[in-house]
Design a protein around this nucleic acid. Structure first.
Length: 828
DNA sequence: AGCACGCCGACT
DNA sequence: GTCGGCGTGCTC
C-alpha cells in the first residue's frame, strides 16, 4: 500500500526540464513534462518541443528539476523520442566546455555534434530512401499515407507531413520510419568521397607449375605473342613486388589493354578490383603482421613510459618513419584492455584504404565517421559507438562529438593540420585541442603525431607540459629526395633562366619527361599576375571592398579579388590616365602554365588550383589524369602539397620559394617550413630517389636550410627567440569576432571599436584588430586580437568574462550584433 | 533559426 | 495612398 502511494506520488510530481535547442540562443529553455511521461524523463534523451509561434524542434534534456520557473508559464514538451539517452553526461560536459572555450552557444555545439537525422525539426526535409525496397504489407496506415505522398512529391517537410496526417506529433513516426530505412532525412549533399579503385592482376596458380607455364608459353608465342610478352612481364614484375596493378603491367610489358583482357578471359590471369590509398606510404607501411623496426620498438616503449607520466604526448616522426604502425600497436593494446579509441585524421587523409587496413586488425569493431558520409550512415556510427559496438573510431574533426563511454586513447594524426580547425559556422573549434580536453575528461591518453609539429605543440612538449618522443629514422628504405637550391638572381645574371624556369629545373624536367616520369611545379599563387601597374602614372587597380590589388586572371579575362571574390573587367588602358602601358607584375599558376607550354610545346601540362578544381569533380579529374599519365607536368598551388600520392612524380619544382618566405604573417616561417617539407615529400617513390628544385632569390634563407637538413628543432628555437624580440608575445590567443555587415568599412570600424574597448580592460595586451592573411584586408570575419597572460596572472575565465561583458555592451550600444568566437590554440 | 513588429523608399 | 525592404527583439 505504502509503495503504491509512493509511486502515485512520484507520478503526480510536476517535472520541468531544461533543454538545449539546436539554435543560436544564449540560454537553455525550460519546459514542463506531462505527468504520464514522468517515468521516461532522463538527461540526454531527445524531446520534441514547440518553440516560438509554430515551430517544432528536437531538443536535448540537459537538466531535470521540480522547480517551476517563476517568471513565466512553461510550455509542455510534446514528446520524448528516445527510450534510452542518445547523449551521455560526459558529452554534455564536453559541449558546455566547448561553448565556453570557443565563446559560442551550446545550441550551436549541439548543431555541430548531432547528425541532422537526430534533430528533426518542422522544416526538415524528408524523402524516400531509394535504395530500400518497401514492403507495403508491413506498413501501418500512417506510414502508408506518408510513403504514398512521397511518391507523388519526392520531398516533404515535417510540417507538411503533420498537415497530411492531421496531427501534430509526427516525429516518433518519422523516427521509426528512419530507423526502418524507409525514409531519408535530406541535408546538403556533400560530394561523396570517391575512393581510388585499381585493378590488380594475379597469375592463375595453375601456372606456378613450371611445366604448365612452359606449355602456356609455347601456345601463346605462336598465336598471341603480345599476350606472351604480358605474361613474361608479369613474372618479372612479381619477383620485385607483391602486388601488380593492371596499369603497371601494361606499362612494363608494352602490351595493350586488350591483350591483358584476353588473358583474363582465358583465365591465365585473374583481375581483382581493390580500393587503394591516395596517401603515400600507406601501402608499404601496413603489411599484415608487420614487425616493428628497432627504432620503432624504442619509440613504442618511450610512448608507453611517457604515458605513465603525462597524459598528452607529442610524437615527432619524420615522414615515412612508420608512425601509423605505432598507432596500431597502441590501439591494439587499448582495445585489448577493453577501452575505446578515437583516431583523428585531417579530412583529406580519410580514405577507405586506411580503414581496410585497420579492419584487418580490429574487425567489425572499427567505425568511420566523416562529413562526406550521408546522414543514415552517420547515425549508424553514432548508435554503434553509443552501444559500444565500435571500439575504434577513425574520423575527421567532428568525431570528437561521438558518444564515447570509456575512451582510453585519442590519436591525433598530422596534429599540425589546419583542417582540424572549423572556421565557418560556430562552434569554431579546433578538434586537436578539443581532443585534449576530451582526453582529460575520460582520463584517456592523447597522442599527437606529426612530421612537422605545430609551434604550440612543440612548445608544450619543450616545456614539459606534454611528453615528447622522436622517431628520426625512415622506415623501409624509402629515400629522402635530393634537394637543390637554385639562385634566381644568379641565373638571371648569367641569362640561363628562361621565363621563370632556371636551367637546373629545366634540365630536371627534361630528364623526367624523357624517362616518362611526371613533374609537379609549385607556385603559391593563383591567377596570372597579382598586380597590374600603369607605367605612366603608377595606378594599380584595387578591390573596392578589400583595398588589396586585384589579380589578373587570363582564363576569365577579369581582375579578381582573392579575398572577397569581387570581379571586374580587366582594363585595356589605364583607368586613371588612359595610358596603354599597363605592366603585369608578379606571376601565378596561370602564367607558369602558359609560359611552360611555350617552352615545352609537346608536354602535356595541366594546372591545379582553386580555379581549376572548383567544378564538381575538378579535383578528382585532375588526380585521375595524373594517375593515368595523361598529364606530364602539373602546375599548382598548395593543393598539391597535401599528402596525396602522385606515384609517377619524380621531380618537384618550387618556382619561387620567396612568396612563402615573405609572408606578412608572424607564423610565416613555420608555415613555409611545413609547406616546403610537404611539397618536397611528393618527390620520388620506392626505389627511385626524387629530386626537388627550390628556386629562390634568397638561397641562404634559414628556413630553406632547415628544410634541407630536416631540422625542425632549429626552426623552433630560432622562431622562439625571434618572437621574444618581436612586438608579439611568443603565442597569442586569437579572438575571432563574428560580426557581419555588408559594408566592409563599417565592419572595419566596428572591429577597431571593439579592440579599443578591450584595451580599456587589458591595455597593451590587446593586439589588433588584425585580419586573416594580409594586413589590410577587410574581410568577412575579422580576427582580432589577444593577449599575453604571462604577467599579472590574469586567469582565462576572467578574461573571457570581461570579453563577454564588452561584447554585451557593444551589442546594446547597437553598433552591431554578433557573437564572439574564439578559435585557435591555447598553449597555456 | 524563424517570425512579428516597425519604420522608411518606389510603386500598382 | 500601399507593398515590401531588412533592422530589432523574442521565443520557455
Amino acid at each position: 500500500m505504502l509503495e503504491l502511494a509512493d509511486a502515485q506520488h512520484t507520478d503526480r510530481k510536476t517535472l520541468f526540464v531544461e533543454v538545449i535547442l539546436p539554435l543560436t540562443i544564449a540560454i537553455n529553455y525550460t519546459y514542463r513534462i506531462p505527468y504520464e511521461m514522468n517515468g521516461q524523463v532522463e538527461v540526454g534523451k531527445r524531446v520534441v518541443v514547440q518553440f516560438g509561434k509554430s515551430k517544432i524542434y528536437t531538443a536535448i534534456i540537459a537538466h531535470i528539476t521540480e522547480q517551476a520557473p517563476a517568471k513565466y508559464e512553461a510550455k509542455y514538451i510534446m514528446d520524448i523520442l528516445d527510450a534510452e539517452p542518445i547523449v551521455n553526461a560526459a558529452q554534455l560536459q564536453f559541449w558546455t566546455w566547448l561553448a565556453d572555450y570557443y565563446l559560442c552557444n551550446i545550441g550551436e555545439v549541439m548543431n555541430a555534434a548531432l547528425p541532422s537525422a537526430l534533430k528533426l525539426a518542422s522544416e526538415t526535409k524528408i524523402e524516400l530512401n531509394k535504395e530500400f525496397e518497401i514492403d507495403r504489407s508491413t506498413l501501418n496506415d500512417r506510414e502508408f499515407l506518408i510513403v504514398d505522398a512521397l511518391e507523388l512529391q519526392p520531398e516533404l517537410t515535417v510540417s507538411d507531413i503533420a498537415k497530411l496526417l492531421g496531427q501534430k506529433t509526427v516525429m516518433p513516426i518519422l523516427k521509426l520510419m528512419f530507423e526502418k530505412n524507409i525514409i531519408h532525412i535530406s541535408e546538403e549533399v556533400n560530394d561523396r568521397y570517391k575512393p581510388r579503385r585499381r585493378t590488380f592482376i594475379t597469375l592463375n596458380p595453375v601456372y606456378h607449375n613450371q611445366d604448365q607455364l612452359k606449355e602456356l608459353f609455347s601456345i601463346l608465342e605462336k598465336r598471341a605473342p603480345k599476350q606472351a610478352d604480358a605474361v613474361l612481364a608479369y613474372i618479372q614484375l612479381s619477383r620485385k613486388q607483391k602486388t601488380i596493378s593492371k596499369n603497371e603491367l601494361i606499362e612494363a610489358s608494352g602490351a595493350s589493354a586488350t591483350a591483358i583482357k584476353g588473358l583474363i578471359e582465358k583465365e591465365v590471369l585473374f583481375a581483382e578490383e581493390k580500393t587503394v590509398s591516395r596517401l603515400i606510404d600507406a601501402d608499404d607501411e601496413l603489411e599484415s603482421n608487420f614487425e616493428l623496426s628497432p627504432a620503432q620498438k624504442v619509440a613504442l616503449t618511450e610512448i608507453q613510459d611517457g604515458f605513465t607520466q603525462k597524459d598528452v604526448l607529442l610524437l615527432h616522426g619524420v615522414t615515412s618513419s612508420g608512425k601509423t604502425q605505432l598507432y596500431i600497436r597502441l590501439i591494439e593494446q587499448m582495445v585489448n584492455n577493453g577501452k575505446q579509441v578515437l583516431y583523428l585524421l585531417p579530412e583529406i587523409a580519410l580514405t577507405t584504404h586506411i580503414v581496410e587496413r585497420l579492419r584487418r586488425y580490429f574487425g567489425n569493431s572499427i567505425g568511420v565517421y566523416h562529413s562526406r558520409f550521408n546522414d543514415n550512415e552517420r547515425v549508424e556510427v553514432w548508435q554503434k559507438v553509443l552501444t559500444g559496438q565500435y571500439r575504434v573510431v577513425l574520423g575527421a574533426r567532428s568525431s570528437v562529438f561521438l558518444p564515447f563511454s570509456d575512451l582510453g586513447l585519442i590519436v591525433v594524426d598530422e596534429e599540425h593540420e589546419t583542417s582540424y580547425k572549423q572556421f565557418d559556422p560556430a562552434p569554431r573549434y579546433n578538434a586537436r585541442d578539443a581532443a585534449i580536453y576530451l582526453g582529460n575528461m575520460y582520463r584517456a591518453k592523447v597522442l599527437l603525431g606529426s612530421a612537422t609539429p605545430s609551434m604550440e605543440s612543440f612548445f608544450n612538449a619543450h616545456n614539459g607540459k606534454y611528453g615528447f618522443v622522436q622517431l628520426t629514422e625512415r622506415f623501409g628504405g624509402v629515400q629522402m629526395p635530393q634537394i637543390e637550391v637554385v639562385s634566381i638572381a644568379e641565373e638571371t645574371k648569367k641569362k640561363t633562366i628562361q621565363s621563370h624556369f632556371t636551367s637546373v629545373l629545366m634540365n630536371d624536367i627534361h630528364t623526367a619527361l624523357a624517362a616518362k616520369e611526371q613533374v609537379i611545379l609549385f607556385q603559391n599563387r593563383r591567377g596570372y599576375a597579382p598586380v597590374i601597374i600603369c607605367k605612366v602614372c603608377a595606378y594599380t587597380p584595387k578591390c573596392i571592398n578589400c583595398d588589396v590589388s586585384l589579380t589578373y586572371h587570363k582564363s576569365s579575362g577579369k581582375l579578381h579579388c582573392h579575398y572577397c571574390g569581387y570581379r571586374e573587367e580587366s582594363p585595356s588602358v589605364c583607368p586613371a590616365c588612359g595610358s596603354t602601358q599597363l605592366e603585369y607584375k608578379g606571376f601565378g599558376t596561370e602564367k607558369v602554365e602558359d609560359e611552360l607550354k611555350l617552352l615545352l610545346p609537346d608536354a602535356r601540362i595541366a594546372r591545379m588550383d582553386l580555379d581549376t578544381t572548383r567544378s564538381k569533380n575538378g579535383f578528382q579529374n585532375i588526380l585521375n589524369d595524373l594517375d593515368e599519365k595523361r598529364i606530364d607536368i602539373l602546375a599548382g598551388t598548395q593543393m598539391v602539397a597535401k599528402g596525396l600520392d602522385f606515384a609517377g612524380v619524380t621531380v618537384i619544382g618550387i618556382i619561387s620559394a620567396d612568396s612563402l618566405l615573405k609572408y606578412p604573417d608572424f607564423r610565416a616561417n613555420e608555415r613555409a617550413y611545413q609547406l616546403l617539407a610537404q611539397v618536397s615529400g611528393r618527390a620520388g617513390r620506392r626505389g627511385k630517389q626524387g629530386k626537388v628544385v627550390i628556386q629562390t632569390y634568397d638561397p641562404n634563407h634559414r628556413v630553406i636550410k632547415q628544410v634541407i637538413d630536416n631540422d625542425y628543432v632549429d626552426l623552433y628555437n630560432t622562431e622562439m627567440t625571434e618572437r621574444k624580440s618581436f612586438k608579439y608575445p611568443p603565442f597569442y590567443r586569437l579572438i575571432q569576432l563574428d560580426i557581419k555587415h555588408k559594408d566592409p568599412e563599417v565592419l572595419y570600424h566596428q572591429a577597431e571599436y571593439l579592440a579599443k574597448e578591450l584595451r580599456k580592460h587589458f591595455d597593451d595586451r590587446v593586439i589588433g584588430p588584425e585580419y586573416p592573411l594580409v594586413g589590410r584586408i577587410r574581410n568577412y570575419f575579422i580576427k582580432s586580437i589577444m593577449m599575453k597572460f604571462e604577467k599579472e596572472g590574469i586567469s582565462m575565465p576572467k578574461v573571457k568574462a570581461t570579453i563577454r561583458e564588452v561584447i554585451l555592451q557593444y551589442n546594446t550600444t547597437k553598433l552591431s550584433k554578433g557573437s564572439i568566437v574564439q578559435p585557435d590554440v591555447d598553449p597555456y
